[in-house]
Design a protein around this nucleic acid. Structure first.
Length: 596
RNA sequence: GCGCCCGUAGCUCAGUUGGAUAGAGCAUCUGCCUUCUAAGCAGAUGGUCGCGCGUUCGAGUCGCGCCGGGCGCGCCA
């Protein structure tokens, strides 16, 4: 086994890769650099072959390089291949088709990779070479309103991206930019003061605040005098009136208790929760600075930034101050950017919101770049589509109300409990509740992360809780089956004993084993794609394929009844599969259950 | 009116800088439980990737036009 490892180590002493595609990629980049010194070799990518008859790994990246330079692609491929100093575990290199380069690798390197994983040296991914500081802004619920189904995508998507970037070695800062300031508080304060029912406020603050808001909102629409009163309350709050401040703080506190409860159930953590109000002291200065720098100018009494040079935004100037002198959300977002840059020095800031805010973020990013052209900062708006009901219209209750997140989570757990109880009545009630919690919450999250985030998706209880198909229960079931093998085999055994007997190439005899193992090796590729494009659905699909390959392995390759050393090999495959499943699900924010 | 997004199998959806023969699940049909959880597996049926033109060795993916749908468009966030 040392025999196959050494060449790799010699090539990359500073950062030795164990993953074959990574090694091939580095070698290819070097060879491309030799052939085409001016080329950006970072564009050279190695991927598993879609069709195994072509080989194990391939690159299609030389064809575009040839095209740009009007070179014959097969000639370039052959020049690059000629400069490759390949390790001995590469059995075959082939130039195929229009200029693909296909590689076939030895079973020995697969084994080496597995054995290293068994020793705990890696789990089929490698940390990024250059860690970045990434701020992720997501969830952002509003004070005095119950969190509803509209908040779930931002929360789950943002959390998944944060977890993935963190695992890859980036420094991630999560910040919940809650809506704790704005015009709605005038109405809320007025309504609160008019409501005499303090006891029900104590009991169910969120529900009551929502009720108050609805009542006062209707009253304001019907009666201009009422609206005027609300405006007066807002002015008092902004001027620092002590009673209004006190009530405002109470609303925030009560709201946050509810947010905390939901985040606890979802297992979502924020490093910071800096609401809009946190930036109030900066707003005036932001407006002034933008004005001084000539970025913004007065228009119809308001302060605006115009984008005459950008066709897309030409008709859409951004307001940074209303004609009454008050700031708006654009101002707050700019101040927030300023704060984050000053305090965290990020390389990247990611906003996870729904797609309807695209225009806002285009404006925000453009204004900020004009304001701070000196900064090397990547700003990304990671947007997502709507959740629809099965009727194809926005997901609502039968009576047309928005669906509260707590109700949604409750129902998921209840439905999962019924399924678990039906399928596995032998488990005691406590166990079934715990499994139902994991399955129910996991199903909601998975259903949310599985579709391409930019498309609208149709919410369906039956689909997300189904055991077949691409669902959380299917993945959790695969995990539970593996754990069951280890329970049968004996609690004392896990990969640490399996690793005592390193596998040899001869041990991988069955086709199902080879396919499964090769898929394990691609875990890191998928994680990088998730982080690169902010698309956790790639990971969902990877895990679904992994669970599928495991199911085929499970059907065809007995583990506990196999003879040694095959038994050890298969136990190791099972163990590593379960670890990748668990790690992958963890990145999606989904817990695993030992049984189900 | 302008802008953004979408249109892939009967239904719900994938499809990683353009890459080799477009994939799943559901539904329908056919097999497999004295064998580690059948909540599973194997197989069959099913597609002019909205339409047209173009770029390219190669287009579901890129460009232009059209048709159909969703969303957004100065003082809400």
């Amino acid at each position: 086994m040392t025999l196959f490892w050494e060449p790799v180590r010699r090539c990359f002493q500073n950062n030795p890769s164990v993953l074959p595609y990574r090694v091939l990629e580095k070698l290819l980049r070097q060879a491309v650099q030799d052939c085409l010194p001016e080329a950006n070799s970072a564009n050279v990518l190695v991927k598993p072959c879609a069709d195994p008859k072509h080989g194990d790994y391939q690159t299609a990246s030389l064809m575009p390089l040839a095209k740009e330079r009007r070179l014959n692609p097969r000639q370039l491929a052959s020049d690059v291949v000629a400069r490759l100093r390949l390790p001995s575990w590469v059995l075959q290199v082939e130039i195929a088709g229009a200029g693909f380069v296909n590689f076939r690798i030895s079973a020995a390197i697969l084994m080496e990779c597995l054995n290293a994983a068994a020793r705990g040296e890696h789990l089929f991914f490698e940390p990024v070479e250059r860690p970045l500081t990434i701020v992720i802004d997501f969830s952002s619920p509003n004070v005095a309103k119950p969190m509803h189904v509209g908040h779930i995508r931002s929360t789950i998507l943002g959390d998944g991206l944060a977890r993935t970037c963190r695992l890859l070695g980036h420094r991630v800062i999560t910040d919940n930019h809650i809506g704790d300031w704005g015009t709605q508080f005038g109405k809320l304060l007025l309504g609160w003061k008019q409501s005499s029912d303090r006891t029900s406020l104590q009991r169910d603050a969120l529900e009551q605040m929502e009720r108050i808001y609805r009542g006062i909102n209707a009253a304001c629409e019907a009666d201009p005098a009422m609206l005027e009163k609300a405006r007066h309350e807002l002015v008092k709050l902004q001027a620092g009136d002590s009673e209004n401040l006190k009530l405002w703080r109470e609303m925030i506190e009560r709201s946050q208790a509810q947010f905390a409860d939901i985040y606890r159930r979802l297992g979502v953590h924020f490093d910071y929760t800096l609401g809009e109000s946190f930036y109030n002291p900066r707003l005036k200065l932001v407006v002034q600075e933008l004005q001084n720098r000539g970025v913004a100018r007065e228009s119809e009494g308001a302060m605006a930034v115009f984008f005459d040079d950008i066709p897309e935004l030409k008709a859409h100037p951004a307001l940074i101050q209303k004609n009454d002198g008050a700031a708006n959300y654009m101002t707050t977002d700019l101040a927030t950017l300023q704060y984050r840059v000053e305090n965290w020095k990020p390389d990247e800031i990611v906003y996870v919101t729904d797609g309807r805010q695209q225009l806002h973020f285009k404006q925000l990013f453009t204004v900020f770049r004009r304001w701070r052209p000196d900064l090397q900062l990547k700003l990304a708006h990671v947007w997502f589509g709507a959740i629809l009901g099965e009727d194809g219209k926005p997901f609502k209750t039968r009576s047309g109300d928005t669906i509260k997140l707590t109700d949604l989570l409750d129902e998921a757990e209840e439905r999962a409990f019924r399924v678990v109880s039906e399928k596995n009545p032998g488990l005691d009630e406590q166990q079934r509740y715990e499994i139902a919690r994991i399955v129910g919450i996991g199903a909601i999250k998975y259903a949310d992360l599985l579709p391409n985030r930019q498309s609208d998706y149709t919410f369906s209880w039956d689909k997300m809780l189904a055991l077949n198909g691409n669902t959380a229960p299917y993945l959790l079931y695969a995990y539970a089956r593996i754990r069951s093998i280890f329970r049968k085999h004996g609690a004392a055994t896990d990969s640490s004993t399996a690793s005592n007997t390193p596998m040899t190439p001869a041990d991988l005899s069955a086709e199902e084993e080879v396919i499964l193992v090769k898929h394990l090796l691609s875990f890191g590729l998928v994680l990088e794609a998730v982080a690169e494009e902010y698309r956790p659905n790639y990971l969902c699909n990877y895990l679904y394929e992994l669970a599928g390959y495991f199911a085929r392995f499970y059907e065809n390759c007995p583990v506990l009844k196999a003879d040694e050393p095959q038994k050890q090999t298969r136990l190791l495959i099972c163990d590593l599969t379960s670890k990748v499943l668990k790690q992958g699900l963890n990145l999606l924010g989904i817990e695993t259950a030992e049984q189900m």
